[in-house]
Structures are given as structure tokens and as C-alpha cells.
């Protein structure tokens, strides 16, 4: 089992310690109705898409795709520009 170092790579600031960022919430499913967007989530152990903000840095909002079981971070995009 490989736990991975918790850093996030901010698109503006580069790789920074996790405590510079603030977790907001898990992203809703794309196309979900308003109620589901606010209250319902599918909890998968292999991947989680999340909203984070770089509050102690450039304050950019980020869309982070990561593995909640191992901590591995797959991808970080600026929120709004994610594929």
C-alpha cells in the first residue's frame, strides 16, 4: 500500500502544502438537478472530484480529482476549466 504525499499543485503557484488549501465540497454529478447537486453524492472509494480553494495563496478555486483511499492526486484544474 502506498500512501502518497499530500500536496496540491496549484495551476498558478505550483506544488504547495495541503494546509494552504481549504476543502469546500465534493463536486456534484454533471447535469444533476438542483436538489441532487446540493444534497446527493455518489461515494466512490477509487475517485473523488472535489472543489478546493487556495485560500493561503492565490485564492484560486480548483477542481481536484483524486483517489480518496490512497490520497493520490490525479489532476488539478482551475474550477470552470475542467474537462
Amino acid at each position: 500500500m502506498n500512501a502518497v504525499m499530500m500536496r496540491l499543485t496549484c495551476p498558478f503557484c505550483g506544488a504547495r502544502e495541503l494546509n494552504e488549501f481549504q476543502f469546500h465540497k465534493t463536486a456534484p454529478e454533471p447535469g444533476a438537478n438542483p436538489f441532487a447537486s446540493v444534497y446527493e453524492r455518489v461515494n466512490r472509494t477509487d475517485i473523488s472530484q472535489e472543489y478546493w480553494q487556495h485560500v493561503q495563496g492565490c485564492r484560486a478555486w480548483l477542481y481536484v480529482s483524486r483517489n480518496p483511499s490512497t490520497g493520490e492526486v490525479y489532476q488539478v484544474n482551475l474550477l470552470g476549466t475542467q474537462p
Binding site: Y51, Q53, V55, R59, L78, L79, G80
Partner: peptide, 15 residues
């Protein structure tokens, strides 16, 4: 509130 505004700006108003 600033984070709230920034969130929606990124989510829906990034362009």
C-alpha cells in the same frame, strides 16, 4: 462571502 463569490465566479463565470 469573498470565497462564496469567488466560487461562483469560477464555477459559472470563468469566461
Amino acid at each position: 462571502m469573498l470565497s462564496h463569490f469567488e466560487h461562483y465566479r469560477a464555477l459559472e463565470w470563468s469566461h
